[in-house]
Design a protein around this nucleic acid. Sequence first.
DNA 1: GGCCCCTGACTTTTT
DNA 2: GTCAGGGGCC
Length: 800
Amino acid sequence: MSSFDENDAFEGASLSARAMAALRPEADYLNELNPAQREAVELLDGPILMLAGAGTGKTKALTTRIAHLLNTGRARPNEILAVTFTNKAAREMKERVGRLLGQPAEGMPWLGTFHSICVKLLRRHAELVDLKSNFTILDTDDQLRLLKQLVQAANIDDKRWPARMLAGIIDDWKNRALTPDKVPAADAGAYNAKGVELYAQYQTRLRELNAVDFGDLLLHMVTIFQTHPDVLEQYQRWFRYILVDEYQDTNIAQYLWLRLLAGGHKNICCVGDDDQSIYGWRGAEVGNILRFEKDFPGAHVVRLEQNYRSTPHILAAASNVIRGNESRLGKELWTDKPEGEKVRLIGHWDGEEEARWIGEEIDAMQGGTRGVRPMSLDEIAILVRASHQMRAFEDRFLTIGLPYKVIGGPRFYERMEIRDAMAYFRLVVSPEDDLAFERIVNTPKRGLGDKAQQTIQRTAREHGVSLVQGARIALEQGLIKGKGGAALRELVEGLARWNAMTRGPRIEFEDDSVIDDGTAPVRYGLPEVSHIELAQIVLDESGYTAHWQNDKTPEAPGRLENLKELVNQLDNFENLQGFLEHVSLVMDNEQDSGGPKVSIMTLHAAKGLEFPAVFLPGWEDGLFPSQRSMDESGLKGLEEERRLAYVGITRAEEVCTISFAANRRVFGQWQNAMPSRFIDELPEDHVEVLTPPGLYGGGQMSAGIESRAAQANVYNSPGWKRMQARQGQYGMSQPRESRNTVIDATAVASFTLGERVFHQKFGYGGVVGIEGDKVEVEFDKAGTKKVVARFLSAKDDVPF
DNA sequence: GGCCCCTGACTTTTT
DNA sequence: GTCAGGGGCC
């Protein structure tokens, strides 16, 4: 996100003449649409709901609609408000609109995520909610630290009432657009009856800190719109057309925000799929999309039902499952693609066998011995319900040397080292950022424990100054002495020095002699070092880089890499401020390298993606649908789980393989489970049952599966035959023969017994055995494991 | 102040 | 079974 620029957003209104000329003739892009898409693009005025099933070309319709709005002169680029949920989606839309327009969509300042757009708006109107326009956006860590302080101050036992819980409750209220005064009495009992009180205190603290959390971005804007009709009206007029992506994921605050903005002209186009609403647990309201026609009387509803992604069998399976849901608007996906393979279903004895089998399947697919064509690992994905399921696959793939990547997981900017570095940068830019100071006073260790930190807090409070100032005063008064004191002095002086570097040398003017007493405005020239150099200086001089260099844990090299990457990212920004702004909202870490890999991710993370081959393991009742979801949310929870199943199946283009295991180790305990009830909802005619005979000693499988297995004549099914043939081919006992030639011919590295080695996942260790391309390593932390040689590097090779 | 051990939790996650 | 966070001990 570029820093807010009024001209950009409101005045630099028109596309360049070049771009106007480059707009394609209407018929051109309209002819590329199917009738439903075309309708969704051409109905420009009034409310419209585009119900876009999975794989029906919704982004195409959405971006074409924007192009059409511009092309027909209905709106200038900066008069269109287009909102998405993720930065990825926003980026993609920008790119595609740009392509349609024949120039980068720079001229669309209001295409972005809910949050980034709200930041822009809130910076303009911050004073209306008692903030300054340079407010900071807190990350979840800061938020939690703040709440912990409040909880402690209120003398609440944070054992019984964890701050995390309070954070959840407050988030929930904010998602529902409830300011402390609006929290209904029914909810007031939350968090030991102190919830609302603490919520109010928290908001006060945020205001004092000139800070907001993510929820506030929306909530403050809703408040402003509700209490300042003049401001609202200004934007209602400005945003002539509104487009919303993934409408089924909106929460109440977002819904209100949209309704307020669309209140005048009602030119709002919401795109979504009620069947893909899977974020109810974080405040999304399927109701928003189900209610659309009531909210916007006279709304047009356009259904995009032609699917361009999957084969008929896959679509039929998905449709039949989702049919089990009561509350849905109803759609039927169809395609003119050729039949393809049936959805495959297989049961396993346990989770490990499931992982083993999938590993072999992937091998075979890649080698071309399974399916109609050889597949690249990039075309294959494994989608799980819960992240702990990934482990079995990681272990297995590591052992057999199958390259994989885990998508999702902790994001780049959530990592400890990135947050620490960011806290330093924040302090350098704004020395009064107390939360940032708290984070890094003693990181790296400076010998400043609880006592010293309390002294700083107390001094700051007594003098009514920031913590950095408080620390300075405490030092002057000799309140903090010894090693800690020296280190603190170094830190405080460092911060002042780095801060000065952000401003460059002072420029003195002839007419007014400048005295920098902190009140008179001082003019500064350009900084003498670039912000990139400055960042490096800060990390080095603060001792933070050294902290990780001296760290001997296996993660340390990776963390240093991340820090390097962070500094590299600065290149895309003009200064630290701009970067900080960006990073609090954005920044994902999707770089990956080194050849094709199987993707492993959660079903949630898979939304919006597609793969030729998809594996859906772990379809067991309790795991999927998740027991917890059903316990906590009953039928609503089950329906959301079912939508998750629908999302999973519809990710597949050519082959979809569903599997379940009779036994699985859960929290260290072996448990047996019934196949998922969703399996019973798969349509027989479109499913091929691969379950080998005799695997289930009767009674393990549900009657439905058993009868289905019988009907499908398992023993004669093509899949079963193929499996037999394949097993005959190279035998189950040593199925790994083709490995090296397929994956990596250079794999057989030579290691010697006793040699120190490093492994990305397991860390450091010593070689205790060698068998062909597999090396047995006794890891310092992870125990003894057999791993493929190519995943090991000699200890000196470790990148620093 | 730092390390170690014990306890308890344990679905999904963007901004 | 694993991990994180907190308490207690050195």
